[in-house]
Design a protein around this nucleic acid. Structure first.
Lengths: 255, 255
DNA sequence: AGGTCGGTTGCACAGGCTGCAACGTTCATT
DNA sequence: AATGAACGTTGCAGCCTGTGCAACCGACCT
């Protein structure tokens, strides 16, 4: 929509392929050298483009800094919430959102069940890392050495008979979860409560958060809960798409 | 230099702070809403800006993609070479550049000594990982679990009496190297050859490569070689600066 | 010296960007 | 249901600003 900016921005992907000198940039843009020079200068002033010692242009550090800052200020919760609320409106059960941080898995959002029976959990509180479905997803995505190290140093409290008993079992479970792309907790934390969970991935494919639907046996059986899996995964995928900025949002009045 | 582009680019750091709507962007830019709209649209078309479901603008995924692509196409060797050559011109000794890859440390560049006595090494060849100064730097920067795992499964051949004898000693050495930010190999690989090495870091501070100066005893003593350390470190820092796109290059005719 | 190549500068022209004002939507309020 | 506010969007006229040209500069090679 803005020719000048359009041209300037077209330089970036071009430089991403590798360093280029003024002439090459001008050619590939189809503009006069002097024009290319001014665009490059502007980009350079903003640090998006950098000039190496052989005078050729490269993408600059600012780009990395921006990308990183944007990452950090990206609030999964903010993006996820409407989706979680919609899922809760559809099925009525408790919906959780959790992230992995500093060796812990934390709930960062929760939409309460519409049923009178609620489960105990609090936003900001660490979850039972060895049994919770969301924890399995988050840990399953860690690089192998870290995952192994973490699994080995965890405690494995037997909340119920179906709790994960030890590191060995946990590692097997994580491998399975990693493989299938979703996770469950069937009475592993509280005898009567089941969960199904799905991962939320960032632009690079790494799992940045996980969400789950939980319900007590008295409301729905484990099998019934499992029928919600496709819906949970669809919700998680929708959040992933929006979080990673991939989802093409339909423009209002553009042709 | 180009007003339009300048304004457009000013939007990026602004959005890095967090999502903003059209009005906020226009205000902080000091332009009319319609102007801001067109700039944002252009940015959006290039994927640098993304519109979330509440219509607010955010930095887009393309930014990450660009940063990543640029990273991958960045060739340390290409950037480092002139610096290595300059260092070699200054001191006359053999200069090496090495990276860590797939559990090995490989020489990827070499500038031969000006002295008749040369050392045996070849570009692309794995280095003696347990004793080489560059290897120590590269391994010292690995995350602790990987470092430990690697140190444990390595062999510790006694090339000389001063070779690193076992994993335990190696881990201590790596800790020291990590601490001091440089490394040496004093006759650990070949009795008569010494090296001093310094790390090259990327924009995120991680060690991406390491460089060293090597010379046989018959040319300079270990102590004399050590006096080159500041020069080696300065060279490595210069490469780091350029590799990470941080170094501000003086503009030719700008006031 | 002469020639080429790449980057840089000054300038005149007009193309494209700007701000304005009016319109369309959505949402909250009465 | 009507009103109004807030926000995004569009068309337009004016003129700012980006454009291409040509000349200049400096480095490098023959």
């Amino acid at each position: 929509m803005s020719q000048t900016v359009d041209r300037a921005l077209s330089i970036l992907p071009l430089l991403a392929e590798g360093p280029a000198d003024l002439g090459q940039v001008a050619d590939r843009l189809g503009v006069h050298k002097s024009t290319a020079l001014r665009l490059l200068r502007t980009l350079h002033e903003h640090g998006l483009v950098y000039r190496q010692s052989d005078q050729r242009y490269r993408l600059g550090a600012r780009l990395f800094a921006l990308a990183q800052e944007a990452m950090e200020n990206l609030d999964v919760r903010e993006i996820a919430h409407p989706h979680l609320a919609r899922l809760n409106a559809a099925c009525g059960h408790t919906v959780h959102l959790a992230v992995f941080e500093e060796g812990e898995v934390l709930y960062i959002d929760k939409v309460e069940s519409r049923y009178p029976v609620r489960m105990y959990s609090r936003i900001g509180k660490p979850v039972a890392i060895t049994v919770a479905a969301v924890a399995k997803l988050l840990l399953a995505d860690l690089p192998e050495p870290e995952r192994r190290a973490l699994a080995d140093k965890l405690d494995y409290p037997m909340y119920t008979a179906r709790s994960t008993p030890n590191a060995e079992a946990f590692r097997r479970e994580l491998a399975k979860v990693r493989e299938q792309g979703w996770a469950t907790d069937l009475g592993g934390h509280e005898e009567s409560i089941n969960c199904v969970a799905a991962p939320i991935r960032g632009a690079d494919g790494r799992v940045v958060a996980a969400m789950s639907v939980s319900a007590p046996n008295v409301v729905v059986t484990a099998d019934e809960l499992l029928t919600l899996l496709p819906q949970v995964r669809r919700t998680a995928d929708a959040i992933s798409g929006e979080y990673s900025g991939r989802t093409p949002i339909k423009e209002a009045g553009t042709r």
